Simulated scan of single mutants.
Amino acid sequence: MKATRTGSRTSLRGAPAGTAVDYGRLPQHVGYLLRLAQLRVWEDFYARLAPTGITPSLFSALILVERNPGLQQSRLGEALGVARSGAMTMVDRLERLGLVERRTDPRDRRAYGLFLTPEGQRRMAEFTARVAEHDRHVTGALTPAEHQTLMQLLQKFIGPARNGGAVHSAAEDDPLPSRHKPAAGTAR
């Protein structure tokens, strides 16, 4: 049978409409379930924050700039695991929204430090409240103990580089440390 798309429905040609899809082993794969969870989380995030223009990546960038005034754009990209061009695009967007400003770094005039603008500082309370409500909504089916267990398991899964809010080096901040090649003559 061949899958065809008609409007917003996917059906199997030759199968009666409404036939259940056999997902086989997919629900047993961590990546598949994480992706479904990510889609659910992002859908709710966008629904709650769309009027503000803030996306999950922009909110993450705002938190890092708020917590690290003067953070260089390249370091922001490293911490978020995005390329320099991606970090530049995020900062450009945050500047257009009037939330972040670049200032010349007094230690390195070629570099810029990132700071929340007064508007950015004022709006962080709104963004944080909306995201907290979003978090409560997407985890609403969990008991407090299940929520705590989920958070612990996710932190364990992603590894120590992202656990506990500790300060890390650039390589440790990368969510995909496998992207970093070991120095010549060193083993992983």
Score class of each variant (00 low, 15 high):
residue 66 E to F: 01
residue 136 R to V: 01
residue 79 A to T: 02
residue 40 R to S: 06
residue 164 G to Y: 02
residue 185 G to F: 07
residue 71 L to W: 03
residue 127 F to S: 07
residue 125 A to Y: 04
residue 176 L to M: 06
residue 137 H to A: 15
residue 57 S to K: 10
residue 132 A to W: 01
residue 12 L to N: 04
residue 29 H to G: 00
residue 165 G to E: 08
residue 182 P to F: 06
residue 16 P to A: 14
residue 55 T to E: 11
residue 112 Y to G: 04
residue 129 A to T: 14
residue 71 L to F: 05
residue 59 F to E: 11
residue 29 H to A: 12
residue 17 A to V: 09
residue 182 P to Q: 06
residue 162 R to C: 04
residue 122 R to D: 11
residue 73 Q to F: 00
residue 143 T to Y: 09
residue 165 G to V: 11
residue 124 M to Q: 12
residue 138 V to K: 00
residue 48 R to L: 11
residue 96 R to N: 07
residue 90 M to D: 09
residue 183 A to K: 13
residue 66 E to T: 03
residue 184 A to D: 06
residue 95 E to Q: 15
residue 98 G to D: 03
residue 98 G to W: 10
residue 56 P to Y: 04
residue 178 S to G: 07
residue 183 A to Q: 13
residue 76 L to W: 05
residue 177 P to I: 08
residue 155 Q to M: 13
residue 33 L to N: 15
residue 12 L to K: 03
residue 50 A to L: 10
residue 19 T to P: 02
residue 6 T to A: 09
residue 118 P to I: 09
residue 63 I to H: 04
residue 117 T to I: 08
residue 37 A to N: 05
residue 168 H to M: 11
residue 23 Y to P: 01
residue 16 P to D: 13
residue 3 A to W: 08
residue 62 L to R: 04
residue 69 P to A: 07
residue 7 G to R: 08
residue 56 P to A: 10
residue 149 T to M: 10
residue 83 A to N: 02
residue 118 P to N: 08
residue 184 A to T: 08
residue 58 L to S: 14
residue 116 L to W: 03
residue 39 L to N: 11
residue 71 L to T: 08
residue 152 Q to M: 11
residue 92 D to K: 13
residue 150 L to A: 15
residue 153 L to T: 15
residue 92 D to C: 01
residue 50 A to W: 06
residue 3 A to D: 03
residue 174 D to T: 06
residue 122 R to Q: 15
residue 102 R to C: 07
residue 177 P to N: 06
residue 178 S to L: 08
residue 3 A to G: 00
residue 48 R to I: 01
residue 13 R to A: 14
residue 34 L to Y: 08
residue 188 R to Y: 04
residue 11 S to T: 10
residue 123 R to D: 06
residue 40 R to Q: 11
residue 169 S to D: 12
residue 55 T to Y: 03
residue 56 P to S: 04
residue 162 R to K: 12
residue 142 L to F: 12
residue 63 I to K: 14
residue 181 K to G: 02
residue 129 A to S: 14
residue 115 F to T: 06
residue 106 P to K: 11
residue 141 A to M: 12
residue 95 E to W: 02
residue 38 Q to P: 00
residue 34 L to E: 13
residue 65 V to L: 09
residue 103 R to N: 05
residue 44 D to E: 15
residue 21 V to T: 09
residue 33 L to K: 13
residue 51 P to E: 09
residue 40 R to P: 00
residue 147 H to C: 03
